[in-house]
Structures are given as structure tokens and as C-alpha cells.
Design a protein around this nucleic acid. Structure first.
Lengths: 229, 229
DNA sequence: TAACAATGTTCACAAAACCTTTACCATTAT
DNA sequence: ATAATGGTAAAGGTTTTGTGAACATTGTTA
């Protein structure tokens, strides 16, 4: 990975960790400790990508993200301690390209950086609205919207994310633990029966919508989005 | 939670507390009181996860973590009295999977163990879809699906696993005990007639599906998936 | 700030699916 | 013929899942 990286975090230990790791990966790394410094370095240093912590004194990550977006479309990955869905949405709305939750796995972060760079260089601006479609079903992550039989239906974020994940990996079975991992996040602490309840509520909403697909229980294993016929 | 746990702490009271608690949770627990002992037990006992105290006489937790990482990728949770960020960063850099601060809440610790195990097992098998195919027969472990003559057929997990095993080792005979071993698990305690019943139910489902293979009884020995012609 | 609404999580119990054992009969080998 | 082995139906018993309701959390509004 041969890119210029700007790391923005008020915690020197984390900055140092990231610097060491990504220099070993072959990146050039510049570090900024607060929002103002970040903006200065961004203009001077012209990095290929920004790793931006959300919680910082003075100017927070959202503000920095907004200001960078006024002058550049370079990819930004937000880093936060909160796994809050709203945060994720806010971040993506402000033009961030990805979102990583502390404590992060360095390997995963590295993979995400590569993925974002790939997207960025492939189509600098395709504005890819990732929409999943099946019979009478339409899910847009960009709009965070669910349409059944063509009509928008209110749905809580977690349910939407779960349905989106299952539908975009249709026919494949996932255990509850795998779903917690993929949808709730790898650092989620909680009961796997939570998945059951979300599936139950999804099924209520999806009842009588289509007979060409179904949220199926695979006994002893987990759930899958099954496509029929 | 059915895992083997290695607890490393120089305080016997804490070891005992953890041992009692996690045995009640269904784990097997081994205790080591210092770093050297920890490494020996790790090699001998082959635990699924290590709970590792940072501050210990002689060899400290960092050192133990480093040495375990030289021989294994098994998950490690570091336990420390300091909530210092530096500690956390160092720990994660050394390859620890999570970090818990004393005094800890047993429930939270338990939840973290589950979360780490989830991550670990999710990463461990980036399963390609291993599909078994014979005439009019298709078994996918990833989809947990059985197709006969191209059409999906509902089937309980044990039956699917048994058929999958036999078909993926076709023409070879297995005794009931071997099947219990391979399909049910080496620690399964039960009657070997259980296999008969599953074979019977499989045969019902597989009747009239194909004449190019068959679940055959090898008298006095066991069963095999036989390919004809 | 307090009350409220929406969402997410946990819990307990009911329901369903599945697995195992048992008993009895059929088949095979000697 | 008889002893050993396999097939099968049915009866529990166990595990897993569904579900309603309570509780917790978060964000919103008055």
C-alpha cells in the first residue's frame, strides 16, 4: 500500500500505533492531534486518505469532515468509540467513506483502507447507491429506506441493516453469532437471542409482501434470506 | 459456553473466582499462577482461549502474550489493573484480542469472552461453499440446503450432516461408531442405533431420486454412499 | 429539565422441531 | 434353526425457536 495517510486523533498513543503499523505497511503517514491541525496538514500535505477520529477537543471529527469536504473529495474514514448507528449515518451523510469503531482490529482497518481506495480510484464519483431489489422489496442503504410493494415503510435502523445484510447474501445461512458480528459489529457484547427478536419484527413487516422470498429459519443453525422457485 | 479456558493470574483468589464462575458457565478451566506455568499449560492443555493478567512476578503478561503469539493465534484477553490507554494499545499491538480492566464485572467479562470467540470462529472459517454433487443430488453446507432433482428439500441438520459426510467420502464404508465420531463428535455418548434411524429417514427422503447412487448397508459393518455403474 | 417516543435488549414461557431410545419384527449368516 | 444384525414405528426427552412483555437506552419534544 503506497499512499499518503493523514491520521487525526487526540490520543498520541493511538496516533503512534497507527503510524508504526501503516509505515510498516508501506504508507507515508502524517499525524495531527486536533481538528485545526488536521485541516492545515490536509492542505499542505495533500494526503490520499484521512483517518479521522470523531471525538476530539475543540473541533470534533464531524466538523473536520465537513470542512474537508468543502475543498476535497479525498476519501475519509471516520473512527469512533461509539458503535452508534446514527453516528454511522451522520458520518456517511457528511461524506465519510467508511466508519470504524474503536477498539479496531488493525488488520480490519487496513482492509477497509484498501477497499475504500479501490472504490475511490475505480470510480472517483459513481455515487453508488447500493440498492438491493427482490420481488416487491427494495432496500437502499444510502437512503436508509425500505420499500415494500413500491411503498416506503418505516423501519428501525437495526432491522433494516439486518434485512439488508441477509438479502445481499441471499440463500446463504448465517448463525446468530455471525449476524451479530456482521450487522451489530465485531465488538458487540450481548445476547444472541437479540437476533431472534429482530427477525420476528422483520417478519411482521414482511408478511404478505411476496411469495418469492422468505426469511427462513434453518433449525439448529441460524437464518437465511431464501429465494424461492 | 463450551470452551477450554486458561486463566493466568498470580492472585489465587482471583483464579479461584474465575474458575468457579466459568465452570458454572459450562467451561473447562485450567489455572496458571505465573508466566512460565502459563506457557507450559498452554502447550499441554491446548485451551481455546487465554485470560491473561498483565502484572505478574517473573514474567509479565506482555511477555507471555508475545510468546504465545509465536506459536498460536488462539484468542487472548488481557486483564489489567490499569485502565491506561497505552496499556490497551500495547496489548492490541502484541496481538491480544481484547482488554479488560480490574476490577471487572464477571458478566461483562463473560460477554467479552463470547464476543471474542465469535470473532475468532467467524474468522477461522472463511468458508468457501463446499458443494457435493451427484446425479440429482446437491448438498451445500454454506446454504445448509439439500437439493433433489434440482429442488430444495427440507432436512434436519443431523441428517444433512450425515449425508454430507457419507457423500463426500463416497464408496467408503463407515461403522456406526465411526459415523458417531465424525458426524456427532468424538465426545458423543449414545447408542449406535441412532445412526440407523437417521439412515432410515434419509432413505425415505432419497427414495426414487436417482439410480446412480444409494445409501447402502454393508452387513455386519456399517453404511456407505455407493456410486453405481 | 422532564416527560415522551422510538428503538434496542433481555427475559420467561410456550411451541415447535428434532434427536434418541426402545421394543418388536425382518433379514442374513452360519 | 438360531443367533446376530438391521429396519422401523412410536414414545418420550431434549434442544431450539417464537413470542409477548418488561426493561433499558437513546433521542426528541414540550
Amino acid at each position: 500500500m503506497d499512499i499518503k495517510l493523514l491520521v487525526v486523533d487526540d490520543d498520541p498513543a493511538i496516533c503512534e500505533l497507527l503510524r508504526v503499523y501503516f509505515e510498516k505497511e508501506g504508507c507515508k503517514v502524517k499525524v495531527a492531534q486536533d481538528g485545526a491541525e488536521a485541516l492545515n496538514y490536509f492542505k499542505l500535505y495533500e494526503p490520499d486518505m484521512v483517518l479521522l477520529d470523531v471525538m476530539m477537543p475543540k473541533k470534533d471529527g464531524w466538523q473536520v469532515c465537513r470542512e474537508i469536504r468543502e475543498i476535497s473529495q479525498k476519501p475519509i474514514i471516520m473512527v469512533s468509540a461509539k458503535s452508534d448507528t446514527i453516528d454511522k449515518v451522520v458520518g456517511l451523510e457528511l461524506g465519510a467513506d467508511d466508519f470504524v469503531v474503536k477498539p479496531f482490529d488493525l488488520k480490519e482497518l487496513s482492509a477497509r483502507i484498501k477497499a475504500v481506495m479501490r472504490r475511490y480510484s475505480a470510480h472517483a464519483k459513481t455515487g453508488d447507491d447500493e440498492v438491493i431489489r427482490f420481488d416487491n422489496l427494495e432496500i437502499s442503504l444510502q437512503k436508509y429506506e425500505l420499500k415494500l410493494k413500491g411503498k416506503p415503510v418505516d423501519i428501525p435502523p437495526k432491522e433494516l441493516e439486518l434485512l439488508y445484510f441477509l438479502a445481499s447474501n441471499c440463500t446463504r445461512v448465517f448463525t446468530r453469532d455471525q449476524l451479530l458480528d456482521k450487522v451489530w459489529g465485531f465488538d458487540y457484547l450481548g445476547d444472541s437471542r437479540t437476533v431472534d427478536v429482530h427477525v420476528k419484527r422483520l417478519r411482521e413487516k414482511l408478511k404478505d409482501v411476496s411469495d418469492k422470498w422468505v426469511l427462513k429459519t434453518v433449525w439448529g443453525v441460524g437464518y437465511k434470506f431464501e429465494v424461492l422457485q
